[in-house]
Design a protein around this nucleic acid. Structure first.
Length: 587
RNA sequence: GAUCCCAUAGCUCAACUGGAUAGAGCACCUGCCUUCUAAGCAGGGGGUUGCAGGUUCGAGUCCUGCUGGGAUCGCCA
């Protein structure tokens, strides 16, 4: 079924057509002035401007046509030519009645089962995951869920950093201290040994990295070791395998805790065998050329107004870079080997890598590795700053471990649950489960509600807060509805819903859902979904306070309110599901 | 130096294609738990949207300049 706002827009568009004006001007949205109207169309103003007509006169003609339509209770003109609509309660009621029986809450299937690959998370092996990975993981996972909801066969790929110089730094650190055995002798099936190695890596890597950055000689050694690894030489290869295995165990723990899902556990190393033939092919076709000892793909264009450095495939020392693996990964993704050939590839990576992706995309289209109809998007996100506005650091000056942040949030949720006392009769397992859901909801919502592209301030107190515009608030409203519906028992929807003032206000929030999803998808921005969920939850909280539901004596009104509650819950849970937030049954 | 991004209430953030009186949360103030979960609700104070111009019937949004902050600019990712 067509969404209500689309139906209304179509009706208004028809009136524009009768005036010989393009249908696009019929676009109608929820009103910015709920005190004046339910919906508004600003098209008369824009159209009048374009056509050099008087907006007020045009609006009057449109009103004359639209007034007769049974969808509206009233059609009026305000100001210079805004069209204001009050929806007919009967029209709204019949729409809601059929909405309840739809599968997808009238969201348009944009994806049509096309495959889409999302590249997010991007943890490096051998490095502990820190708070910076939170954004990459949950934004990416949310976009994957959003695309699935919109009909795509969307697949998440973790795309680990498992082939870069950081490994050379680490291995040389072991070698320098004669401690290779600490790594090589680890039994990866022994949990205790794995944890020990994990802790060793956590401490060792930052030191090794700092040392290499400070000493060019150490850096050279690290790069040489990296090249040996990439050539499959021992002991680097075995060291790498052990580090990778242990690192993945750690990653999975974090991702499971966050309810972040991946379909593909690929890394840079997986395309190692694709690279030589790919480069050879690109050289043969003249796309890849030698430049100062390196092999590069020039991506400059004549109309560029800034410098576009070439994409480097082989460094002077013969090692590959992330541009190489990214390009080869695209070859792999377009091969159809592991999954259907995608129509979209979305990279959820820090905004600071925008130039890299511009280079990559140019190279990909230029070489036809990406066909013209493939949509490549860098859905970048902003930098995480501390409360002082500078890049986030803990008080000790380091980065905060992701697992620690998750633990803190769940712990605070547990405390809150104990304070509230209502949980005293719950089993320990259920309390644990609720605390986990509430804690994770707080973390995720605090992050996802920010505009994706903007830098944002990481404030641990804000992230683990349970009052106000937070994840737990949304859960609380959802749980209240669940409780209400449990108590109400069977709902017997009346033949025609009885919509009073409060019912209409709530229903108007519901109907914006299909357009919200479309909007979020168009710009790849989960915060649009957050905003919707919060407004809907807020509208419900108001409704809940203002209207008796189970105790309502008018049976038709009572059943209507229960139907509305059911619809709110469905919409709220759909939004939360897209955000990757799980709802408990009670809290 | 070049290119790009950002600047909105005390703080953290919204504002869909240029629309009406710029909205939320936190913090602050006033009410509301013998009635469906107070992690809540109702209400209040708080704004020259960094500054100066311009385009437009209409600008937080578009254009120009300036100030302040950040990022990036070939062998790290």
């Amino acid at each position: 079924m067509t969404s209500l706002l689309q139906q209304i827009s179509d009706i208004v568009a028809a009136a524009f057509t009768a005036e010989g004006i393009d249908t696009a001007y019929g676009h109608t949205q929820l009103s910015d002035r709920p005190d004046l109207a339910d919906m508004q169309c600003n098209g008369a103003l824009a159209a009048a401007k374009k056509l050099g007509r008087n907006p007020r006169t045009l609006a009057e003609k449109l009103v004359t046509q639209l007034q007769a339509n049974s969808a509206f209770a009233s059609v009026t003109i305000a100001g210079p030519g805004f069209l204001n609509f009050k929806i007919s309660p009967a029209f709204l009621a019949s729409y809601l009645a059929s909405l309840a029986s739809t599968q997808n809450l009238n969201v348009e299937n944009v994806g049509k089962s096309e495959c889409a690959v999302l590249d997010y998370g991007g943890p490096n092996i051998a490095k502990p995951m820190h708070v910076g990975h939170l954004r990459a993981s949950i934004i990416g996972d949310s976009l994957r869920r959003l695309m699935i909801y919109a009909g795509f066969n969307a697949l998440g790929d973790v795309h680990m950093g498992d082939w870069g110089t950081h490994l050379g730094m680490l291995f040389m650190d072991y070698a320098r201290n004669g401690e290779e055995k600490l790594l090589l002798d680890v039994d990866t099936n022994n949990e205790e040994a794995v944890i020990k190695l994990f802790n060793d890596l956590s401490e060792r890597y930052p030191k090794a990295s700092a040392a290499a950055k400070a000493d060019p000689k150490l850096m050279e050694e690290a790069q040489a070791a990296t090249l040996k690894l990439q050539n499959g030489e021992e002991p680097f290869r075995t060291m790498w395998e052990i580090v990778k295995k242990v690192s993945i165990l750690g990653m999975k723990k974090n991702f499971d805790a966050l309810n972040v899902h991946f379909d593909l556990w690929k890394g840079e190393a997986d395309v190692n065998d694709i690279i030589p033939p790919m480069v050879k092919d690109l050289q043969g076709k003249g796309y890849a050329v030698d430049d100062a000892g390196a092999v590069v793909i020039p991506v400059k264009r004549n109309d560029d107004n800034k410098e576009y450095p070439p994409l480097i495939l082989y460094k002077r020392d013969g090692a590959v870079m992330y541009g190489t693996t990214d390009l080869a990964t695209l070859v792999d993704r377009m091969s159809g080997n592991d999954h259907p050939v995608p129509s979209r590839v979305v990279y959820v990576v820090d905004q600071r890598q925008a130039l890299h992706f511009e280079q990559l995309f140019r190279a990909a289209y230029l070489t036809s590795i990406a066909p013209a109809n493939l949509e490549l998007t860098h859905a970048g996100f902003g930098t995480m700053n501390g409360t002082d506005g500078k890049p986030f650091k803990t008080r000790a000056g380091g980065v905060m471990n992701l697992a620690d942040l998750i633990g803190m949030s769940i712990e605070k949720a547990k405390e809150r649950l104990a304070e509230a006392k209502i949980a005293t009769d719950f089993s320990a397992t259920e309390i644990e489960e609720i605390a986990r859901k509430v804690g994770i909801a707080a973390l995720k919502f605090a992050d996802l509600q920010n505009t994706r592209t903007a830098d944002y301030v990481f404030d641990i107190d804000r992230m683990t807060r349970f009052e106000g515009k937070t994840g737990p608030y949304l859960l609380y409203q959802a749980v209240r509805i669940k409780s209400l519906l449990r108590k109400a028992g069977d709902i017997k929807p009346p033949a025609a819903l009885t919509l009073d003032e409060e019912g209409i206000i709530l229903a108007l929030q519901l109907i914006a859902w299909p357009e919200t999803v479309k909007n979020a998808l168009r710009t790849y921005t989960p915060h649009v979904i957050c905003d919707y969920a919060y407004k809907l939850a807020q509208a419900f909280a108001r409704f809940y306070g203002a209207c008796p539901i189970i105790s309502e004596e008018n049976e038709s009104l009572k059943q209507t309110r229960l139907v509305l509650c059911q619809l709110v819950l469905q919409h709220l849970e759909a939004a939360l599901a897209i955000l990757g937030i799980e709802t408990p049954e009670r809290m």
